[in-house]
Amino acid sequence: MKPTFLALTLAATLPWSAYAAEYRQIQADQSAITFVYQQMGVAMEGKFRRFTAQLQFDPERLESAQATVEVDLASIDTGSADGDQEVAGKTWFDTSAFPTARFVASRVKALGDHRYEATGQLTIKGKTQDIVVPATFAAQGQSGVFDGRFTLRRADFAIGQGPWAAFDVVANDVQIQFRLTARTGE
């Protein structure tokens, strides 16, 4: 291939891909998925250390937006080693049988003012629920940041059964917070 031709091809594709501004690649080191719940009336925080996301998000072309987020449940950090071990067990996540939690967005709607709403299905421990996840999106050049939170009820996914099923010690509502930083694809 002649160098001039190469340069021409590059010149033709570069501006186009910059325009498209489709955010696809999650920057793990600038992303976080955390959760907050009540234990004996006290707010407790935890996080997941490992998760992956496949993303196709262009604010200008929401109809083709896609997102799949997978969380490695064994990477949980509940704040204590005891807790981490406990929630891996059968009555909680049963991570040996159900290692990942998956959210697949089927539709993304703009609410204006950088606010969006993703409708999709959340699957944990073999149970699937339709959920709506609100998030803001702020683009800074090559990277964009999604920030959002939603509340799930752990009982809907059989998380915490048996002795943990009552909500007096560990509440049913769990607030999931996420911050996902994505870069535009090359």
Binding site: M40, G83, E86, V169
Partner: peptide, 11 residues
């Protein structure tokens, strides 16, 4: 061992 009772006792 970790259990709801244990968390209650800690509180």
């Amino acid at each position: 061992p970790l259990s709801p009772q244990k968390l209650q006792l800690y509180s």
